[in-house]
Design a protein around this nucleic acid. Structure first.
Lengths: 231, 231
DNA sequence: CGCTCCGTTGACGTAAGTCAAGAGATGTGG
DNA sequence: CCACATCTCTTGACTTACGTCAACGGAGCG
């Protein structure tokens, strides 16, 4: 079960992207935006459907993925607090290129596409900021795709864990613990592999004394070794 | 050797993207834009360097690629007549994310970033059009990356050839000939593999009677079979 | 006529996907 | 609280596409 309510804080979020709105625009946005709490694995929008809204992640994490041949999902990106998603569909007036579901419990704000586009059309500053955002995000996404294509699973896994470690997952009691609040299946998707190979890689690291595995958490025993394996 | 001269036609090109400029802006653009002829393998701009200009391809084809570990190049996109490139760097005020070189002889117009940005800032319509363009292009690029990750070399090659066939390469005398105006090395890069595997795939198709190979050209003997292999 | 470069072919290694079976978990109903 | 069903995770054996290394043949060129 999940709850919805009016969202009056979107203007302040989105990484300050919307901070250039006039008071009137801010009010209009607040009136139209609806915040909604999603449970893990709950769907936010679907690939191929008309892009009717832009979404702003307020808390938690969501994944964006494409379905290939009925049963294979490719995660193309993740979004965290302050990130927008669905932008490309709404701005380009094309269907969503990916589906979005919550990875952990997440609060996501829905901004109707019509409203969002009217703001973009009226507010040149917003348009410029969006261009900057899209340019950078697109470049980053490209770098990630290239990395995924030309690095091995273990390397990607090490990189993933190192990143998680760096950004300090909130539920990290001791300094070297990394929370993995998801199933192996999902972790495998994020790293871009299958559960089997993921398991082998993980236990391989453990055997080498780099990690200690604990079902939904990983303790990093040898930080340097992990970073070296991340390349 | 290559020649440069003022370019007065950019405003009309870029897929009509710049058709919304005022006469004054058009003049300013024309005054600053310089058209330059590049020979195959000639470099246009380099990954990692400051993004000083947006480029508009007038004729020919160029490739955008990233260099990985000293000797491995990954082609991330190609651009043909009417396409812009270098956009992300200039708009995002970040270094170029890839290098660009001519694939065939190409005429490319250089638009100083400063000028381009001033036009974007002044002309809201241009900003909106750019958002649409970037959104669509980004979605397309993502689709291509996903395809490259989850399809086999033969499939990608078939897809590549089918595309070339569809868009009708200019130098196609008989209806079923596809010009390959580049070395195997470069073709391999475009398809995302090595020259060796490319050769095998190509000759595999030939053995199956799908293609007839001719050094810099390929004749499609069985169009249906090729399309089926493209998936 | 040799030199070099490119394309082709062969032999081989290997990362990682697939299939399948077993070992823990987790949950449910009696 | 136990027994049973259902997951998830792990492990093993096998397959395979593709990259790598190396050798060779032909085309172009001096």
């Amino acid at each position: 079960m999940s709850s919805s309510d009016r969202c009056s804080r979107c203007a302040g979020a989105a990484g300050g992207l919307l901070s250039c709105l006039t008071p009137e625009q801010r009010t209009r946005l607040a009136a139209a935006a609806v915040s909604h709490a999603y449970l893990p694995r709950e769907s936010i929008f679907h690939e191929g459907t008309p892009a009717l809204a832009v979404y702003c992640v307020r808390s938690g994490t969501i994944k964006l993925f494409r379905r290939l041949d009925q049963g294979t999902e490719v995660v193309v990106a993740t979004r965290g607090p302050g990130d927008l998603t669905g932008l490309r569909g709404v701005l380009g007036d094309i269907p969503y290129g990916a589906s979005a579901t919550a990875l952990e419990p997440a609060t996501v704000c829905t901004i109707p596409g019509e409203i969002f586009m009217s703001l973009v059309r009226e507010n040149a500053t917003l348009g410029c900021r969006l261009l900057v955002t899209m340019a950078r995000e697109s470049r980053l996404a490209e770098a990630q795709f290239v990395a995924r294509m030309h690095s091995r699973v273990r390397q990607r896994l090490a990189r993933f864990l190192a990143d998680r470690m760096a950004e300090g997952s909130p539920a990290a009691p001791s300094g070297n613990a990394v929370a993995i609040p998801m199933s192996r299946e999902e972790l495998a998707q994020l790293v871009g592999t299958t559960p089997e190979t993921l398991s082998r890689a993980l236990h391989g690291f453990a055997e080498d004394g780099v990690l200690a595995l604990d079902r939904r958490e990983v303790r990093v025993l040898d930080r340097a070794a992990l970073l070296k394996r991340a390349e």
